[in-house]
């Protein structure tokens, strides 16, 4: 199965990091992968998004115009990208920050109050990992084990102390 994934949210919500973890995980599961971040002023507090492709064959273009998997962590991102999701695609969104405004019935939509859960369960700043764990649970696009391996790769050596908490958040989301 080929996954064309968009991660989108405010700068600072960790969408780039969630995308990086996913890309590493895809790579470690033996697939071909690519990651293309949005760049420029968007990074400075506006909406940030990141395209990840996971495929069994060589990836031609890294650009994702029509995702079959979308993680939206803020309202502008949801509004911007939900209409672009491919028919039959899946959307994971943070319903502690986002009100569903679309009327699509041809896609699977799974809300999770990731930001609220992060705040209440001691995972400050890790809503991205909670949402990623939940995405794995709902779609099976990558196994929890391989995501943990990808996470270990994506956390830089200088921040190794944060790995444990990230893994816990990932598991929390998976088991939600």
């Amino acid at each position: 199965m080929a996954y064309n994934i968009l991660f989108a949210g405010f700068g600072g919500q960790g969408v780039q990091f969630a995308a990086k973890v996913t890309t590493y995980s895809g790579m470690m599961s033996g697939s071909e992968v690519s990651l293309l971040p949005s760049y420029g002023p968007e990074m400075r507090g506006g909406t940030s998004n990141c395209a990840v492709r996971i495929d069994n064959k060589m990836i031609a273009s890294p650009i994702v115009n029509e995702p079959n998997l979308l993680m939206a962590l803020n309202q502008p991102s949801y509004d911007k990208f939900v209409e672009k999701v491919e028919e039959g695609g899946t959307v994971i969104f943070d319903d502690s920050l986002i009100k569903r405004t679309d009327a699509r019935t041809d896609i699977s939509v799974y809300p999770i109050p990731a930001t609220k859960l992060a705040r209440e369960h001691g995972f400050q700043g890790l809503a991205n990992m909670i949402a990623l764990g939940y995405m794995a649970k709902k779609t099976g696009f990558l196994s929890l084990d391989v995501l943990k391996e990808g996470l270990a790769k994506a956390v830089p050596a200088s921040k190794a102390a944060l790995l444990g908490k990230n893994i816990e958040a990932l598991e929390f989301g998976f088991n939600y």
Binding site: M27, L36, P62
Partner: peptide
């Protein structure tokens, strides 16, 4: 181009 500079690949 900007895409090639910014994209990540294995």
């Amino acid at each position: 181009d900007g895409t090639l500079g910014q994209m990540m690949e294995p």
